[in-house]
């Protein structure tokens, strides 16, 4: 019998220093969790002080004294995810769906001494609701660390190619 292979099995194995392939698999797996609406599992990928950041400005360096589209810690991400489950979440009746197409993540940094690994991933992201389908192009930068033998996200930064454009609702996670 052939076992269905989900990279989550790879994620389950304890590690000390991740291989490049493990970093790549992690980033691809993370996008898959979002596409499959497995958002509780997705949130668990973040460290306790992990941040999801979507800058508003091209090349933005300051997340707090410059406005961002999103700059959210685990509390704010939890609120978003719990809200999506609610009965009175009107903007999600009907629900949105999303779809990622990633280029192979590139390893920008391997700093084993400081437990910091950075990947860079160009991607296209589609969000749909009703008859409306929006396409976004972005670069995802993941700052990862090994915590208790598992890869975790310290910072996921999503830079939209048109970050300063006027958007309608963007309701899920890129």
């Amino acid at each position: 019998m052939v076992e269905v292979h989900d990279v989550v099995d790879v994620m389950g194995a304890s590690m000390e220093a991740p291989t490049n392939q493990q970093l790549i698999d992690f980033v691809i797996h993370e996008a898959r969790l979002i596409d499959q609406h497995r958002l509780d599992e997705w949130l668990d990928l973040f460290t306790d002080d992990g941040i999801y950041w979507m800058p508003l400005e091209w090349g933005q360096t300051d997340p707090k004294l410059t406005t961002s589209l999103m700059y959210e810690d685990k509390l704010l991400l939890t609120i978003r995810i719990e809200r999506l489950k609610g009965k009175r979440t009107y903007s999600q009746k009907p629900k949105s769906r999303c779809h990622h197409v990633l280029q192979t993540p590139q390893i920008d940094k391997r700093d084993e001494a400081n437990n910091e690994f950075v990947t860079w991933t160009p991607m296209h992201y589609v969000e749909t609701r009703y008859d409306d389908q929006q396409l976004y192009a972005a670069w995802a930068t993941h700052t990862l660390a090994v915590v208790d033998g598992k890869l975790r996200i310290r910072l996921k930064r999503v830079d939209l190619v048109n970050c300063d454009a006027a958007f309608g609702n963007i309701q899920l996670f890129m």
């Binding site: 406005t67 006027a166 609702n169």
Partner: peptide, 24 residues
């Protein structure tokens, strides 16, 4: 300013969960 900007992105951004329901 930090609070002002947090308010703006939590309430008035296209990614705001408050804005989503208003626009709906």
């Amino acid at each position: 300013l930090e609070r002002t900007l947090m308010y703006n992105r939590l309430i008035n951004a296209p990614t705001s969960v408050v804005g989503h329901d208003d626009l709906e």
